[in-house]
């Protein structure tokens, strides 16, 4: 491609810099280098992830009621989980919750990132405004949305009345058919900042001459967006999907604040279930078992994806 010609031979990353390297490190094999690079990370990881995970797996085989001493129970917790209507319900709710929330938050964030990237300087202040929602804690966002949805003096009902749509007013969080949707909207509001940021960063790392070439060929900004920005911002989109999807599985505070899981369990997600069972009801074994199941489910979904993307090392 023509682009290769524009490479600057004297850039800060020219191969010449390699001469600065200490001689001893030159001889390292890939394996040695990899372990050298990974060891510090693995130390942190071992203490704060591997050890608690092993502990969680161990706990999941015990029946623990609050502070009482644990009783070994084999697969009892797992068997109970799969016959627990509340757990199965939470799986269903989670599927809707995680997929819709991730889809909309990433879509909105990506779209905004593409628009903003056409004029990065003038949209900076707007990006900061949208990102601000990401910086507010879930509990506080919950409170702000509570004011919007409340049945008596809620902002949403107030606006609907003001524009003559009185018949659309609702107790948004009390009606089982609107509660989950309302919580998802609030959650999407909190989550758009991340896709906006990662997609924007991704677009900014698209080589500039690609655009120049396209504009010289007479392309309009619409087609530039479609043919260059959208496909080349995929790394940012992937990261956003990954982070937002897995974060949505853990969401608790916002749901707790807005609906407390209600009305009648219609907004209880797996994250809510896990938190309630282990932190509120303190059935640590049961909560642990539900965490293990979630871990396995995510593992099953993610292994093929990760394998596909890791291929052979370059």
């Amino acid at each position: 491609m023509a682009l290769a010609e524009t490479a600057s031979p004297d850039g800060p990353i020219g191969p010449s810099t390699a001469r600065l390297r200490p001689a001893a490190l030159r001889q390292l094999s890939d394996t040695q280098a990899a372990w050298l690079l990974l060891t510090p990370l693995l130390l942190f990881f071992g203490v704060s992830v591997i050890y608690p995970v092993i502990e969680t797996i161990r706990l999941s085989f015990f029946e623990i009621r609050g502070l009482a001493p644990p009783k070994f129970d084999g697969f009892g917790n797992y068997i109970r989980l799969f016959s627990d209507a509340n757990f199965l319900n939470s799986m269903k709710v989670t599927l809707v919750w995680a997929l819709t929330a991730t889809f909309f938050s990433v879509l909105i964030g990506w779209g905004l990132a593409m628009l903003c990237s056409l004029n990065p300087q003038k949209t900076l202040v707007f990006r900061v405004m949208i990102f601000a929602a990401y910086g507010v804690s879930e509990a506080v966002s919950g409170f702000m949305w509570l004011g919007i949805y409340r049945p008596d003096y809620g902002l949403l009902n107030g606006i609907l009345e003001a524009i003559g749509l009185t018949n659309l007013t609702q107790p948004w969080l009390g009606n089982p058919s609107t509660a989950l949707g309302s919580v998802i909207v609030a959650y999407v509001w909190t989550q758009v900042g991340l896709p906006l940021m990662t997609c924007f960063a991704s677009i900014q790392s698209i080589p500039k001459n690609l655009f120049e070439a396209a504009y010289i060929d007479g392309a309009k900004s619409g087609s530039v967006m479609r043919h260059i920005i959208a496909p080349l911002s995929m790394p940012g989109v992937r990261v956003a999907i990954f982070i937002n999807l897995l974060n949505s599985l853990k969401a608790f505070d916002l749901i707790f604040m807005l609906t407390g899981g209600g009305p009648v369990r219609s907004t209880e997600t797996v994250g809510f279930f896990m938190y309630r069972e282990s932190m509120l009801n303190f059935k640590l074994g049961y909560g642990a078992a539900s965490t293990v199941i979630l871990l396995i489910a995510v593992l099953v979904v993610s292994i093929p994806l990760i394998l596909k993307r890791t291929g052979d090392a370059k």
């Binding site: 409340r150 049945p151 008596d152 107790p171 969080l173 009390g174």
Partner: peptide
């Protein structure tokens, strides 16, 4: 009281 859905949407402080 209010209708059921409205009651279910109310926090104690409201």
């Amino acid at each position: 009281c209010d209708d059921g859905n409205t009651m279910l949407a109310l926090d104690w402080d409201i």
